[in-house]
Amino acid sequence: MAVHRILALLFAMAVPMAGAVPVQAAEADHPEARPYDESRAAMVDVALALARAAMSRKRAILVMGANWCHDSRGLAGWFATPRFAEMLGSRYEIAYVDVGHPQEGEGRNIDIAQRFGIAEIVGTPTVLVLSPEGALLNAETAPTWRNAASRSEDDIFGYFAAFTPE
C-alpha cells in the first residue's frame, strides 16, 4: 500500500512538469522550444517519466538535447504543437534531458543514455523511445535525430506514431 501512495505522490508531482512547452518563433520552417534545463535533476525527471509510463502503460521518450542546438529546439517545438501534443500525450511520457556539449567534451547526463545502452551522445538531440518497462526500442535510430530541424513534420509524426497503436 505504501508503494502505491509513493507512486501516486510522484505522479501528482510530475503532472505539472508534463505541461506544455512554450513554442517560440521559428528560425526556419518549424516551431522551436527550449525545454532543456541544465539545473534540473535529470535522473529524477527520467525516473518520474518512467514511473508515469509504467503506471499508464505508455511508452516514454527521453529527448537528450540542449537549448543551444537548433535540432533539439526544432524537435521540441514540433512536440509542443497541438498535432503532436495530442498524439504524444496519449501514447508517451516525455522527459527532456540537457546534455550540454558532449561533442566538445562538456557533456552532462550521458550516464542516462548509457543506462539504456547508448554508449555516447554523438549528436543532439538523441531520442530514446522506451517501453513501459524501460526497454530501449529504437537503439539503431536514437542517435539519428541531429537533423531533426530539417525533417518534415509528417516524417517526424509518423516515426513516433509508428511505435504505438492508436
Rank of each mutant, 00 (worst) to 15 (best):
T144H: 08
Y36E: 01
I94L: 15
R83D: 15
D155N: 13
V15E: 13
P16C: 07
P31N: 05
V21I: 10
A49Q: 01
V44L: 12
R40T: 09
V97K: 01
E38L: 14
A135E: 09
L136V: 05
V44T: 14
V21G: 00
P22R: 02
T124C: 11
E120Q: 15
A18T: 05
A66H: 14
F79Y: 14
D37W: 09
N67Q: 15
L136T: 08
W68C: 11
D45R: 03
A66F: 11
A53E: 00
P16V: 02
S150L: 03
S90E: 15
A113G: 06
H101T: 06
V97R: 01
I118N: 15
P102R: 00
V21K: 04
V21Y: 00
T81P: 01
F84K: 03
A135S: 10
G19C: 08
N147D: 14
V46N: 01
A28Y: 12
R146G: 11
E32W: 00
Y92H: 06
A148I: 02
D154M: 05
R59G: 01
S39H: 09
R52A: 10
E38K: 14
R83N: 09
T141E: 13
G74P: 03
V63R: 01
A149N: 10
G134S: 09
Y92S: 02
A113M: 09
I94M: 15
E86Y: 10
M13L: 15
D45G: 12
I110E: 05
T141G: 07
V15P: 00
M87W: 04
N138R: 06
